[in-house]
Every structure is written in structure tokens, then in C-alpha cells.
Simulated assay, not measured.
Amino acid sequence: MEALFTSTAVVTLAEMGDKTQLLSLLLAAKFRNKTAIVLGILVATLLNHAASAWLGAWLAGFINSDLGHWVLAGSFILVGLWLLVPDKEEGVSSRFDAYGPFVVSLVLFFLAEIGDKTQVATVLLAAEYQSVLWVTLGTTVGMLLANVPVVYLGARLMEKIPLSITRVVASALFILMGVITLL
């Protein structure tokens, strides 16, 4: 259960101000069917994070060595530092609008997550906990906790969240996980 709770907390915090949260805001402004947007986010996240967690669990077999242990700890610390760098807002192409909010959300979220901080975090968490199921569920819940309110409450919510503070807290959490891994 530690893998579930840690994965949920880490991704929820890491997602604050992330490009996919901004994507949620843009999709909510573009489409009226909020449920379809949320379902697209859910399916895209499950697919992306399940593959990422599987990769992390597979890599865990190589991390059992001393060098692997240092690489894992260093990776947590590097992701923590990476979280301090804010994402840039990217525009959403309107050429896919004809496919509807579910397909557009699914495709754009899946693509936006490739190489994203939360995808890297999912790989690292799965390598640490060696649990594809609990890490995938936790990171998916974290993604939904961060994005669903944005879909339904939009810009009003984004104005009230102190993104600089959440970035620092998420960064500190990753750095702490790196230090704990070293110990």
C-alpha cells in the first residue's frame, strides 16, 4: 500500500502546473463534454503509466547492484531538481476536434506524457517498489486528482493554486526519496 500512497502523492504534487494540467484547461475550454475529457485522461494515463511502471519494474532487476542503487537515488534527485523548472504552455491543435473530446483527450494526453516528469517518476517509483499494479494505480489516481478539478473548475482553480509552492514541495519529496534510497 505504500507504493499506492506514495505514487499518488508524488504524481499529484508533480502534476501541479505541468503541461498536462494546462492541456486539461485547454481541453475543458474547447469541449463541453467534461466526462469524455476525464475518460480520455484516465485511459491515456492508464496505458502510459502501466507501460512506464512495467519498464520500471523490469529495470529493478538491474538496480539491485550497488551502481544501480546509486543510479536510482540519483534519478530521484534529478527529477526533484527537474520539477523546479516550470513547463511551457503548448497549444492544442484543432485539426483533431472532429474526433470528439474522448479521442482528442486520449491521444493528446498520451503523447504529452511521453518523456514527461510524471512518466519518469512512474518508472522510478516502479523500480523502487517493484509493483506495476500499485504504482500504476497510484500514479493514475494522482494524475486524476490533479487534472479532473481543472477540467470541471477551470481557470478559477488554477488562479488559486500556488504553483511555485507545489513545485518546491514535489521537488523536496523527490529529493527526499533519493536520499532515503541512498540510506
Rank of each mutant, 00 (worst) to 15 (best):
S94G: 09
V169N: 09
N147V: 01
K88A: 14
N48V: 00
L39V: 12
L84I: 10
L27F: 07
H49L: 01
K88E: 15
T139E: 03
L47W: 04
D18V: 01
E128W: 14
L183H: 12
L84R: 11
A50H: 05
K19D: 07
F31K: 10
A57W: 09
T140R: 09
L78G: 13
Q21C: 10
F174L: 10
E2T: 10
A127M: 11
V120I: 08
F174A: 10
V10H: 06
L22N: 10
A127F: 03
N48P: 04
V168M: 05
A155N: 12
G91S: 13
I175R: 03
L39N: 10
V38A: 14
A53G: 11
V43G: 07
A73D: 12
G80Q: 06
L78M: 13
E90G: 00
W70I: 02
K88Y: 10
L47P: 11
F5W: 14
V150D: 04
G91W: 01
L157R: 04
K19C: 03
L111K: 00
L27S: 06
T166S: 12
K34N: 13
L26T: 08
E113Q: 03
T12A: 15
V79Q: 04
S171Y: 02
G61V: 01
L111H: 00
E113D: 05
R95T: 13
V151Q: 05
V132P: 09
S131Y: 05
R32F: 01
M16P: 12
G17P: 06
A172W: 02
S131R: 02
I180V: 15
V103S: 04
I180L: 08
L173I: 08
V141I: 15
R32G: 14
A170I: 03
P162Y: 00
A28R: 09
P101K: 01
E15A: 12
D66R: 00
S24I: 00
L153S: 04
L22Y: 08
R95D: 11
S75Q: 02
G74R: 08
K160W: 06
T181I: 00
L23Q: 14
G40I: 02
T12K: 03
L133P: 03
M1F: 08
L4N: 15
A50G: 11
L47N: 08
M158W: 03
K160G: 07
T181L: 05
A53L: 04
V104M: 11
A73M: 00
V148N: 14
F31M: 05
V135K: 02
S94L: 03
G74S: 11
G115S: 02
L137M: 08
D97V: 08
L83F: 04
K34A: 14
G142E: 04
L108G: 06
H49E: 09
S7A: 15
G91Y: 05
L27R: 06
V79A: 12
T140P: 15
S7H: 11
L23Y: 11
S7G: 15
A44V: 01
T122Q: 07
L183D: 04
S65L: 00
V71F: 11
Q119Y: 01
A57C: 06
F62C: 07
L83K: 07
G142S: 05
I114S: 05
A60R: 00
W58T: 14
K160T: 09
L72Q: 02
E15W: 00
